[in-house]
Lab assay of single mutants.
Amino acid sequence: VLKALERTRQLDIPDEKTMPVLMKLLEEAGGNWSYIKLDNYTALVDAIYSVED
């Protein structure tokens, strides 16, 4: 979780936006981090930006 938060902080995305999206992605992935961690957490960042749209 810390590495995911560090990555999104680099992009000026607050933890308050990151955590709900991260928890949803983890739930959808059955707790499997490998998809979320791919390409420096690209799936997480993309999911956060899609929620903002």
Rank of each mutant, 00 (worst) to 15 (best):
S34D: 15
D53P: 14
N40F: 07
K17I: 15
I36A: 04
T8K: 01
P20L: 11
S34M: 12
K37M: 15
P20F: 10
V21K: 03
D39Y: 08
L26F: 05
T18S: 12
T42V: 11
N40G: 08
L25P: 01
L2M: 12
D53E: 14
S50E: 12
D53Y: 13
R7T: 06
Y35N: 13
E52Y: 13
L22M: 05
L5C: 07
G30I: 06
N40E: 07
E16G: 08
E27Y: 10
I48C: 01
T18C: 06
E16D: 11
V1C: 14
E16A: 11
I48V: 08
Y49V: 09
I13Q: 02
W33G: 02
Y35G: 13
D39V: 05
I48E: 00
A43S: 09
D46S: 12
E27C: 11
I13K: 00
V51D: 12
T18G: 00
L25H: 00
A43K: 11
D15M: 03
L11E: 06
L5R: 00
L2G: 12
L44I: 03
E27V: 10
E28M: 13
V1G: 05
V51E: 14
E28L: 10
D12I: 05
K37H: 10
D15K: 02
D12S: 14
V1N: 05
L38V: 10
D53W: 10
R9Q: 05
D12C: 15
P20E: 12
E16W: 15
S50V: 10
A47G: 06
L38S: 12
D53N: 13
A29L: 12
N40C: 07
E52A: 12
V45K: 02
Y41N: 00
G31Y: 12
E16L: 07
E52R: 10
A29W: 15
A29T: 15
D12R: 14
L25R: 01
I13R: 02
D39R: 07
A29N: 15
R9K: 04
Y35A: 13
M19E: 03
L5M: 05
V21G: 01
L25T: 01
E6P: 00
V1S: 05
W33T: 01
A47E: 06
G31A: 05
Y41D: 01
D39C: 08
G30L: 09
D15C: 06
Y35H: 11
E16Y: 14
V1Y: 13
Y41P: 00
K37C: 15
Q10I: 09
T42A: 15
D46T: 13
L11H: 07
Y41R: 00
I13A: 01
T42E: 11
V45Y: 01
A43Q: 10
T18A: 15
Y41Q: 00
E6K: 06
S50R: 14
V45T: 06
E52S: 12
S34C: 11
E6Q: 12
Y41V: 01
D46H: 13
N40P: 01
I48R: 01
M23Y: 09
T42H: 15
D46F: 09
Y41A: 00
M19N: 02
K17T: 12
L11M: 08
Y49W: 12
A4C: 09
L38C: 08
N40K: 06
S34E: 15
L5N: 03
G31I: 05
Q10E: 12
E6G: 04
A43Y: 10
R9L: 05
A47Y: 06
E52H: 12
L44H: 00
E27W: 10
V21I: 13
E16K: 08
L26W: 05
I13C: 02
E27K: 10
E28T: 09
M19I: 15
S50N: 11
K17L: 12
Y35W: 13
D46L: 13
L11R: 02
K37V: 15
L44Q: 01
A29G: 08
K37T: 15
D12A: 13
E6Y: 07
A4N: 04
L2D: 15
L38N: 11
A43F: 10
I48Y: 03
Q10H: 08
M23G: 05
L2P: 08
L25A: 03
S34H: 15
V21P: 01
K24V: 07
Y49K: 13
L22R: 00
A4S: 03
E52K: 11
A47V: 06
E27A: 12
A4Q: 04
K37E: 15
A4I: 04
V45E: 01
R7N: 03
V51T: 14
V21D: 02
D15N: 03
K3P: 05
L44Y: 02
S34V: 10
M23C: 11
D15Q: 02
T18P: 00
D39M: 08
L2V: 11
K3E: 15
K3V: 07
N40A: 07
L22K: 00
M23Q: 10
S34T: 14
K3L: 13
N32Q: 07
A4E: 07
A47I: 04
N40V: 05
M23T: 09
R9C: 06
V51P: 07
L25K: 02
I48A: 03
A47W: 03
A4M: 02
N32T: 05
A47M: 10
E28R: 10
Y35L: 12
K24R: 14
P14M: 05
I13H: 02
E6I: 10
Y35T: 14
Q10W: 07
V45L: 13
K17E: 07
S50D: 11
L22Y: 01
Y35M: 12
L44M: 02
L26N: 00
L25M: 14
E6R: 05
K3M: 09
L2F: 08
E28G: 08
L38P: 06
D12H: 14
Y49Q: 12
T8P: 02
E52P: 11
Y35V: 13
V45P: 01
L22D: 00
A29R: 09
A47Q: 06
Q10S: 13
I36M: 03
V51I: 13
M19K: 04
D46R: 12
R7D: 04
K3C: 14
A47F: 06
V21S: 04
D46N: 15
Y35D: 11
V1W: 15
P20W: 09
M23D: 06
P14R: 06
E6L: 09
A47P: 01
Y35P: 10
K17S: 07
G31C: 10
E28W: 10
E52D: 14
P20K: 12
V45N: 00
D46K: 14
T42C: 08
G30H: 11
T42Y: 11
D39H: 09
Y35R: 10
I48F: 04
D53G: 13
A4F: 05
M23W: 09
V1A: 06
K37F: 11
A29S: 15
L2I: 13
I36P: 00
N32F: 05
W33N: 01
N32L: 06
R9P: 02
R7V: 12
L22F: 01
V21R: 03
V1T: 08
T42L: 14
K37D: 10
M19Q: 04
A29K: 10
V21H: 05
L26G: 01
V21M: 07
A4R: 02
E28I: 12
L44D: 04
R7H: 09
A47R: 09
R7M: 07
G31V: 05
I36W: 03
I13M: 04
L2K: 14
P14L: 06
E16N: 11
N32C: 08
K3D: 15
D46P: 00
L26M: 05
E28V: 09
L44V: 05
G30N: 13
V51W: 14
W33E: 03
G30W: 05
G31W: 14
R9V: 02
K17M: 11
A43L: 14
